[in-house]
Protein backbone atom coordinates (compact mmCIF):
# COMPACT_ATOMS: atom_id res chain seq x y z
CA UNK A 1 0.00 0.00 0.00
CA UNK A 2 1.47 3.37 -1.00
CA UNK A 3 0.82 6.66 0.77
CA UNK A 4 -1.82 8.96 -0.69
CA UNK A 5 -0.52 12.01 -2.53
CA UNK A 6 -0.83 15.17 -0.43
CA UNK A 7 -0.94 18.30 -2.58
CA UNK A 8 0.71 21.53 -1.43
CA UNK A 9 -1.45 24.49 -0.41
CA UNK A 10 -1.49 27.26 -2.97
CA UNK A 11 -0.73 30.79 -1.81
CA UNK A 12 -3.20 33.62 -2.40
CA UNK A 13 -0.79 35.16 -4.90
CA UNK A 14 -0.64 31.85 -6.75
CA UNK A 15 -4.42 31.67 -6.91
CA UNK A 16 -4.68 35.19 -8.29
CA UNK A 17 -1.90 34.52 -10.80
CA UNK A 18 -3.58 31.33 -12.06
CA UNK A 19 -6.95 33.08 -12.47
CA UNK A 20 -5.39 35.93 -14.44
CA UNK A 21 -3.43 33.50 -16.60
CA UNK A 22 -6.60 31.66 -17.72
CA UNK A 23 -8.30 34.98 -18.46
CA UNK A 24 -5.31 36.17 -20.48
CA UNK A 25 -5.40 32.95 -22.53
CA UNK A 26 -9.10 33.46 -23.34
CA UNK A 27 -8.58 37.02 -24.52
CA UNK A 28 -5.47 36.08 -26.48
CA UNK A 29 -7.27 33.28 -28.32
CA UNK A 30 -10.07 35.63 -29.31
CA UNK A 31 -7.68 38.33 -30.46
CA UNK A 32 -5.37 36.02 -32.38
CA UNK A 33 -7.52 35.64 -35.51
CA UNK A 34 -7.95 39.40 -35.66
CA UNK A 35 -4.21 39.90 -35.50
CA UNK A 36 -3.69 37.29 -38.17
CA UNK A 37 -6.48 38.91 -40.20
CA UNK A 38 -7.14 35.55 -41.76
CA UNK A 39 -10.73 35.20 -40.69
CA UNK A 40 -11.64 38.57 -41.99
CA UNK A 41 -10.28 37.49 -45.34
CA UNK A 42 -11.97 34.09 -45.24
CA UNK A 43 -15.33 35.51 -44.29
CA UNK A 44 -15.15 38.47 -46.63
CA UNK A 45 -17.91 37.78 -49.12
CA UNK A 46 -16.72 38.00 -52.69
CA UNK A 47 -18.52 40.85 -54.30
CA UNK A 48 -19.71 40.22 -57.81
CA UNK A 49 -18.48 42.28 -60.69
CA UNK A 50 -19.60 45.89 -60.57
CA UNK A 51 -23.26 46.28 -61.35
CA UNK A 52 -24.03 49.59 -62.92
CA UNK A 53 -27.80 49.44 -62.80
CA UNK A 54 -29.52 47.16 -60.34
CA UNK A 55 -32.95 45.86 -61.24
CA UNK A 56 -34.96 43.15 -59.53
CA UNK A 57 -34.61 41.05 -62.67
CA UNK A 58 -30.81 41.44 -62.82
CA UNK A 59 -30.69 40.41 -59.18
CA UNK A 60 -32.69 37.25 -59.98
CA UNK A 61 -35.68 38.20 -57.84
CA UNK A 62 -39.14 37.02 -58.89
CA UNK A 63 -42.34 38.96 -58.22
CA UNK A 64 -42.97 37.39 -54.82
CA UNK A 65 -39.41 38.13 -53.70
CA UNK A 66 -39.59 41.69 -55.00
CA UNK A 67 -42.79 42.33 -53.04
CA UNK A 68 -41.20 41.04 -49.81
CA UNK A 69 -38.01 43.08 -50.33
CA UNK A 70 -40.14 46.20 -50.75
CA UNK A 71 -42.14 45.40 -47.60
CA UNK A 72 -38.81 45.04 -45.77
CA UNK A 73 -37.91 48.56 -46.87
CA UNK A 74 -35.44 47.74 -49.64
CA UNK A 75 -35.03 48.91 -53.24
CA UNK A 76 -32.91 47.11 -55.88
CA UNK A 77 -29.79 49.06 -54.93
CA UNK A 78 -29.97 48.39 -51.21
CA UNK A 79 -30.97 44.76 -51.80
CA UNK A 80 -28.06 44.30 -54.23
CA UNK A 81 -25.58 44.87 -51.42
CA UNK A 82 -27.12 41.90 -49.58
CA UNK A 83 -27.84 39.65 -52.57
CA UNK A 84 -24.38 40.00 -54.11
CA UNK A 85 -22.65 39.00 -50.88
CA UNK A 86 -21.43 35.46 -51.44
CA UNK A 87 -19.40 33.13 -49.25
CA UNK A 88 -16.28 31.55 -50.67
CA UNK A 89 -16.05 27.87 -49.78
CA UNK A 90 -12.75 27.18 -51.49
CA UNK A 91 -10.83 24.66 -49.39
CA UNK A 92 -7.13 25.10 -48.69
CA UNK A 93 -5.89 21.45 -48.39
CA UNK A 94 -2.89 22.42 -46.26
CA UNK A 95 -5.02 24.34 -43.77
CA UNK A 96 -7.49 21.47 -43.68
CA UNK A 97 -4.69 18.98 -42.96
CA UNK A 98 -3.27 21.19 -40.20
CA UNK A 99 -6.72 21.56 -38.64
CA UNK A 100 -7.34 17.80 -38.70
CA UNK A 101 -3.93 17.14 -37.11
CA UNK A 102 -4.53 19.73 -34.40
CA UNK A 103 -8.02 18.51 -33.45
CA UNK A 104 -7.21 14.78 -33.62
CA UNK A 105 -3.83 15.28 -31.91
CA UNK A 106 -5.47 17.27 -29.14
CA UNK A 107 -7.93 14.51 -28.33
CA UNK A 108 -5.41 11.66 -28.65
CA UNK A 109 -2.87 13.29 -26.33
CA UNK A 110 -5.56 14.33 -23.89
CA UNK A 111 -7.04 10.84 -23.68
CA UNK A 112 -3.58 9.33 -23.13
CA UNK A 113 -2.58 11.79 -20.40
CA UNK A 114 -6.03 11.56 -18.79
CA UNK A 115 -5.80 7.77 -18.70
CA UNK A 116 -2.44 7.95 -16.92
CA UNK A 117 -3.85 10.39 -14.36
CA UNK A 118 -7.02 8.33 -13.98
CA UNK A 119 -4.99 5.24 -13.08
CA UNK A 120 -3.40 7.25 -10.23
CA UNK A 121 -6.86 8.30 -9.03
CA UNK A 122 -8.19 4.74 -9.11
CA UNK A 123 -5.09 3.35 -7.44
CA UNK A 124 -5.37 5.81 -4.52
CA UNK A 125 -9.12 5.35 -4.24
CA UNK A 126 -9.28 1.57 -4.32
CA UNK A 127 -5.82 0.35 -3.26
CA UNK A 128 -5.19 2.56 -0.20
Amino acid sequence: MSKNYTPPNQSLFGQIFDSILILALVYASLMLPLLMKEDAKAEEPTVAAEVVVNTWESLGQNEVMQAQWVKLGHNPDSAAAIINNRFDYTIDPMMLLITILVVVGYFVVMLKVSDKQYREVIAEKFDN
Binding site: V26, L32, D39, Y89
Partner: peptide, 15 residues
Amino acid sequence: FLGYGATLLSIMAFY
Protein backbone atom coordinates in the same frame (compact mmCIF):
# COMPACT_ATOMS: atom_id res chain seq x y z
CA PHE B 1 -13.39 25.11 -40.73
CA LEU B 2 -15.22 26.37 -43.83
CA GLY B 3 -16.41 29.52 -42.10
CA TYR B 4 -13.98 30.25 -39.30
CA GLY B 5 -10.84 28.19 -39.91
CA ALA B 6 -8.42 30.56 -38.19
CA THR B 7 -10.75 31.04 -35.22
CA LEU B 8 -11.05 27.28 -34.87
CA LEU B 9 -7.28 26.92 -34.71
CA SER B 10 -6.83 29.76 -32.26
CA ILE B 11 -9.51 28.36 -29.95
CA MET B 12 -7.85 24.95 -30.15
CA ALA B 13 -4.59 26.71 -29.25
CA PHE B 14 -6.31 28.08 -26.14
CA TYR B 15 -7.40 24.63 -24.98
